[in-house]
Design a protein around this nucleic acid. Structure first.
Lengths: 334, 334
DNA sequence: TTCTTTCATGTAATCGATTTCACAAGCAAG
DNA sequence: CTTGCTTGTGAAATCGATTACATGAAAGAA
């Protein structure tokens, strides 16, 4: 491997001078600078970042922990994070946690031992950030808050916009609106359920029925199963509020089986569907600001890496409620 | 930061002993081993990988360069790569090149200076791998070959299965089958075009018409535009072979505009569409083995990292031709 | 001219681990 | 009772950069 020592020898200068040239330091005479650059090119010298990092204690890598990059919502976040990072000379280490706390903590251990410059995480509900925080690695939480850990967070206004999303169904004339949400304890699931309940309360004037609020895993299968159960009720709902994109897709699939696609049974999906809707179906969609979440998270993290020392911030981004997917539309995600 | 020196002092041993304990080296007496482990836990010691890497010259990070993680085809590849890598203790650095040779070479420079343990790349047609190869960093090319660089590659059998895909349209009774493929010089685009041409030649007995073979950028817009041009021909095609998923989506969108969705105009998309087809549309699909491509690429790379020293291999994975998307189906990609 | 500054440069310490080497102790074989 | 092997241990060199400090030269001020 070609080191600065080789370059120094070839250029007839000291290693300090070579280092200065590569650091863009001005305290080098033009002649030597040129000689160093020539020697470096000649030898094919590429500085070794491991050595630099060890010395400077700075890493130019940020870890991104998401549940599953295959979910288009997280794909968009990842892409946005990478864009912001690259612009600033940082690379992104991608980690899929599959919502598994064990996998998550394993990755946090790796990130801490790296150590990376910072961490952006979509945390599980039992996340433990003490390791990176103790070691001074800044963390930004995205999409959800990180339990009791006091770190920057960027989330969507889940409760409020879920309320408006559920109201949309009432506005469209439906009266018995069910909810399919994620597992208990998952922040987004609970918040979205709360929004739905609020809407039902306001529009019907009574407490939401327990049997109309289904919990499921955030998956296609979960959405299907819950929908089937809802349809099997003595008095089934005439509309469904699905708390995420996968649940929405599952609901549509189940409704299709029994030929009850919208508008027969109304559907609003919280978060866009990865789909082309080929018929004007009237599936209602709210658009989660995925790209914006990722972008803000990366920006906030970089500020922390740059040394910003203020109390933890919590930003709430607005969800666009009420787009109706009709005609043919391609969406890769959200 | 807690270092092995702190641990050594606390445990009353030398740094060498601490290092041996963490390396799982057997040449340590039980008593001291325990003392070290206790001290380490007490102090919250996490070994610093930068220092380890500098010394061992080994990195546990592999770089993954894809055009765009938002394309579900590459999302799947990325996920598969990450899965294999994690199992073996490696992390994945995600890089989006956007098919931009400059961005690509910039990332390759970063990867070489890191240096990473290995590189998996979906290369542009003007890729230059000399930097990593000179530095002995193994490279595996996936989805496409890496120009004249002699590295392991995993690709789909594009030409052969494109031929079969185009034949499907003839089998369904269409006779004037057009092709929309990617830019000139892009391997997959050229191969798939070749497959289509072969099918036309065999089924019609004459050379394919030049005006029925459209080049476009691999994008939704490219597919739309090309489709519009095809439909505007004096004698327009009655079926379209779209050489990738985005082109396929674009074609469907354009056909929808003029109310000519399948089966009016036949469509086969080479590579799955990120969609839910809500009507039994008869869009024909070939399923690219995206996950399998990523998995094999990662496996081959790890073999190289482990020192496998045989001539470059080129694996060709089979494409499943002929699935028909009907009913409601959710596909995140391919 | 002489005294400060500023600039260019090199030497050597440093980052935090791993690993070679030397040495000592324990034990088996001759 | 040696000799030879294995095992446990620590001191010190090492990986490849950065950077504090020292030094000498040049430029500017008095």
């Amino acid at each position: 491997m070609v080191t600065i020592y080789d370059v120094a020898k070839a250029a007839g200068v000291s290693v300090a001078t070579v280092s200065r040239v590569f650091a863009g330091n001005s305290h080098v005479s033009a002649g030597r600078k040129e000689a160093v650059e020539e020697a470096a090119k000649e030898l094919g010298f590429v500085p070794n970042s491991m050595a630099r990092r060890l010395r400077t204690q700075h890493s130019e890598v940020i870890a991104l922990l998401v549940p599953d990059i295959e979910n288009p919502f997280f794909t968009l976040i990842a892409r946005a994070v990478e864009d912001v990072a690259r612009e600033r000379g940082y690379s992104v280490m991608l980690c899929n946690t599959d919502e598994d706390p064990e996998r998550e903590s394993e990755y946090l251990r790796v990130a801490a031992s790296e150590p990376v410059a910072g961490i952006i995480i979509v945390p599980t509900s039992s996340v433990d950030l003490s390791l990176p925080l103790e070691r001074g690695v800044p963390v930004v939480s995205v999409d959800r808050h990180a339990g009791s850990f006091d770190v920057d967070a960027v989330v969507a206004d889940n409760a409020e916009s879920s309320k408006r999303a559920a109201e949309l169904l009432f506005d469209h004339g439906y009266s018995r609106v069910a909810c399919i949400t994620g597992p208990m304890g998952v922040e987004t699931a609970d918040e979205r359920l709360r929004g739905w309940a609020e809407a039902v309360r306001e529009r019907t004037g009574s407490e939401p029925k327990a049997e109309l609020a289904k919990r499921a895993s955030y998956s296609l299968e979960g959405g299907e199963e819950a929908t089937r159960e809802l349809l099997a009720l003595p008095s089934p709902p005439d509309a469904i509020f699905a708390a995420n994109n996968r649940l929405g897709a599952g609901a549509l699939r189940a409704l299709h089986e029994v030929d009850s696609l919208p508008p027969k049974v109304g559907v609003v999906s919280f978060g866009g569907l990865p789909l082309i809707l080929l018929a004007p179906l009237g599936v209602l969609i709210t658009h989660l600001p995925a790209r914006e979440l990722g972008k803000r998270a990366a920006e906030m993290l970089l500020e922390r890496i740059d040394g910003l020392d203020i109390p933890a911030r919590s930003e709430v981004l607005e969800v666009q409620v009420g787009g109706e997917d009709s005609g043919i539309e391609l969406m890769y995600g959200q």
